[in-house]
Amino acid sequence: MEYFNDHKKLFLTALGLFLFLTILVAILPALYNQKNNAPLPQAEALSGDALQGKAIYVANGCVACHTQQVRNVDMDKVWGERPSIAADYASLHRTDLWRNTATVMGTERTGPDLASIGTRQPSIDWHLVHMFNPRIVVKQSIMPAYPWMFEVKKVPAKGDVVVNVPKEYLQGQEGKVVATKEALQLVAYLQTLKQIKLPDGTPNLEFLYKREKKNESGAPQEQQLDGTALYAANCQSCHQENGEGLKGAFPPLKGSKVVLDENPELMVDIIMNGYSGRVQEGFPPMPAIGTNNNLTPEEIAAIMSHEKTSWGNNAKKVTSADIKKLMDLVKLKSKDTPATK
């Protein structure tokens, strides 16, 4: 062991081994990846407000709880329609002289994944209310509130974005809640988070570890799907668990004419193509949630049946066969809706 009794030789050997492995498993793969991946053709570079919003996202440590990656495993299907690929991250660059490239991929999912939040929840109004205090729209949420990104004004100026905050969350303050530039920038960033379609002909990566569909009783599939759970996952954050919506922000489904209608066509249309028929009343446009979240006819049937028979609603349940027909019908009607499939 004479070799190791010489401190120069010993420590140079150890450092050499470490440097060699470092170059092999970190530096070379990193260089290779940044050289060989470009943003997808349809991807738009962040600019203006969205870019500022990303900086706010990093400054407030949102990455501590939110991931931005759809893994290639079946359980992640709820977060996007295809697994994330290297190209999705290729447009990330160093923020400025002082700050490194943002780590947006994340390692912790205390809150939901945001890889396609721009598609899943496109409503600016929802995001602003949620940012002011998440518990206004999601009772069980433990996300921090960001009231310092808002101002309370007696009389909002022209061009101010007023946020519909219920009285009990104002803590005695009088006036209207107005979003600051920061809040709007942050939401602008969230709205850009969408999964971009792969160029024509390129198949999506496969989702691994497929869930086995249980079908033991032989009953139709929509009867086995849990309408309540699907409602919670897709609709509840706006229309609320009690179906009453949020006064002045999101319309109620309880006693809604559309929901109770014998003919489910309009309801399917709204779910698949979105709806802006009640903007006059102060309700923001409803996103095309069925299309955005890739809901199947069976899932939509389960959700609709849940909505039609809950909270005192007393309409007939629908079947997946009917819904499938209607879905094909309303698809033709909406050529202007950007298809995400």
């Binding site: 530096i27 260089l31 940044q34 991946n37 290297a86």
Partner: peptide
């Protein structure tokens, strides 16, 4: 020098 896109993530993991 190796912190663009996924390069950053690989460096971060390391």
């Amino acid at each position: 020098f190796w912190q663009d896109g996924l390069g950053e993530t690989i460096t971060q993991g390391y």
